[in-house]
Amino acid sequence: MASESTPRINAKYLDSFTNQTVRILGKVVSLRGETATIDANGSINLHLNRDAHLSLNNAVEIVGKVQPDLSIKVLQATDFGSNIDFNAVEAVVDATHRYKEIFYESND
């Protein structure tokens, strides 16, 4: 089924997903105009687009493309508020790759 999926990952998985569109839920730790840093089991640099509105210390869900330098080009950012249990979020990332048959099509 050629359906475009955006696998949920965190900093640990970045290098196996270069040039792919992924979904990352992390906490905004710094904002510098066009770029930002989030923490998702490790820090990740973001290149923001114009309509991405991030709030410092809030959780944000990013859909974006992993660049060769392991930064993310943001396609879409959705604010997830301040009430996120990151242990559960990590469990989802873990389940995504452990039981990928229900989450994404993989080449291997």
Binding site: N83, A88, A91, V92, A95, I102
Partner: peptide, 18 residues
Amino acid sequence: TDKMDITYHLLEATYVHL
């Protein structure tokens, strides 16, 4: 309204699949 519902749902779907 509560974004954690998304996370919980995905875990629940995994659980039922397993």
